[in-house]
Computed example of a mutant assay.
Amino acid sequence: MVYFECGLCNETVKKPKLAKHLQRCGSHTVSCIDCSKVFAWNEWESHTSCMSEAQKYQGNLYQGKESSNKGQVKQDTWVDGVRRAIEDPQTDVAPHIRSLVQKLLGFDNIPRKQKPFGNFVKNSLKIWDQSKIDAMWNVVASASSKPDGKPPGKAGQAVPEPGKPPAKEAKSWPGWKRAIDDELTVGAMPWKRLCVRVVQRYLASGNAGDNDELELKALSSIPEDYCCAKTPNVQLSGSSG
């Protein structure tokens, strides 16, 4: 599931709930928690998936678990095919059906069989009009993936760039203070977002733990002189802005 940070109030919001949040908050921009990319109010819906923290910090040495990756890769390929179908300028899909399918792609684990798909649409999008559900199913059922032109690689393993030697070792967990410093080198950020990113890095390094407890650990590891009483932002000591 993709999470976004509101550009106005800094609240972290799941994608399916983001549209209502923006209507209430009035922000014109949001940013992805995982990749930090900033999206305008009319761009975020197309951002349906993102690199994992493990991929981000382990680079070319990242290897997903094959048992879980096979199904995920198949699902992602199918979702990409659906996305291409509704974004095709030559598509004859009605605009309101295209919009509904776009919203649906914000959810995880969309069923690929008709009956479970119909139930999923009813529960997720609260759509009960069978004609709309059938029209959405026709779109996703007819979508097929196309070759992306990339050389094949092992599932979950990135293919090294030509001429670039692979890294010798993945980044290990540097400790809470160092991880906080690393995240803040790009600039100040709200403490909540900082804690989420540091915990994601901790888990991506092969560690385990309860998210809530780990976020409290990250929060308690922020040096006092990194905080400002006037804003929720955290920044490296001596930084300005």
Score class of each variant (00 low, 15 high):
Val79Met: 03
Val79Ala: 07
Asp80Ile: 01
Gly81Asp: 01
Gly81Lys: 04
Val82Phe: 01
Val82Ser: 03
Arg84Ser: 10
Ile86Pro: 03
Ile86Asn: 06
Asp88Cys: 02
Asp88Phe: 01
Pro89Thr: 00
Pro89Ile: 02
Pro89Lys: 02
Pro89Glu: 07
Pro89Val: 02
Gln90Met: 10
Gln90Pro: 01
Thr91Met: 04
Thr91Arg: 07
Thr91Gly: 04
Val93Met: 02
Val93Glu: 05
Pro95His: 05
Pro95Gly: 03
Pro95Glu: 08
His96Gln: 12
Ile97Glu: 02
Ile97Met: 05
Ile97Arg: 02
Arg98Asn: 05
Ser99Tyr: 08
Leu100Ala: 14
Leu100Arg: 14
Val101Tyr: 10
Val101Ile: 12
Gln102Cys: 10
Gln102Asn: 12
Lys103Ala: 08
Lys103Asp: 10
Leu104Ala: 02
Gly106Met: 07
Phe107Met: 01
Phe107Ile: 07
Asp108Pro: 01
Asn109Arg: 07
Ile110Pro: 04
Pro111Ala: 06
Arg112Asn: 13
Arg112Lys: 15
Arg112Ser: 12
Arg112Tyr: 10
Lys113Gly: 08
Gln114Lys: 13
Lys115Trp: 09
Lys115Ile: 09
Pro116Arg: 06
Phe117Asp: 06
Phe117Met: 05
Phe117Arg: 04
Phe117Pro: 07
Gly118Asp: 14
Asn119His: 13
Phe120Pro: 10
Val121Ile: 13
Lys122Gln: 15
Asn123Cys: 10
Asn123Lys: 13
Ser124Arg: 14
Leu125Ala: 09
Ile127Pro: 11
Ile127His: 08
Trp128Ala: 15
Asp129Ile: 13
Asp129Gln: 14
Gln130Asn: 15
Gln130Cys: 13
Lys132Phe: 12
Asp134Arg: 12
Ala135Glu: 14
Met136Asp: 06
Met136Ser: 11
Met136Lys: 10
Trp137Asp: 08
Asn138Gly: 14
Val139Ile: 11
Val139Glu: 07
Val139Ala: 11
Ala141Cys: 13
Ala141Tyr: 14
Ala141Leu: 10
Ser142Met: 15
Ser142Lys: 15
Lys146Phe: 05
Gly149Leu: 03
Pro151Thr: 11
Pro151Glu: 07
Lys154Cys: 05
Ala155Gly: 06
Gly156Lys: 00
Gly156Val: 01
Ala158Trp: 04
Ala158Gln: 09
Val159Tyr: 03
Val159His: 01
Pro160Ala: 01
Pro160Tyr: 00
Gly163Leu: 00
Gly163Asn: 01
Gly163Phe: 01
Lys164Arg: 05
Lys164Leu: 04
Lys164Ala: 00
Lys164Gly: 01
Pro165Ile: 00
Pro166Ser: 09
Glu169Asn: 07
Ala170Gly: 02
Lys171Ala: 11
Lys171Trp: 04
Lys171Cys: 10
Ser172Cys: 11
Gly175Phe: 03
Trp176Met: 00
Trp176Asp: 02
Trp176Tyr: 02
Lys177Arg: 13
Lys177Asp: 07
Lys177Tyr: 06
Lys177Trp: 00
Arg178Val: 15
Arg178Asn: 13
Arg178Asp: 15
Ala179Glu: 13
Ala179Gly: 05
Ile180Gly: 06
Asp181Tyr: 06
Asp181Gly: 06
Glu183Asp: 09
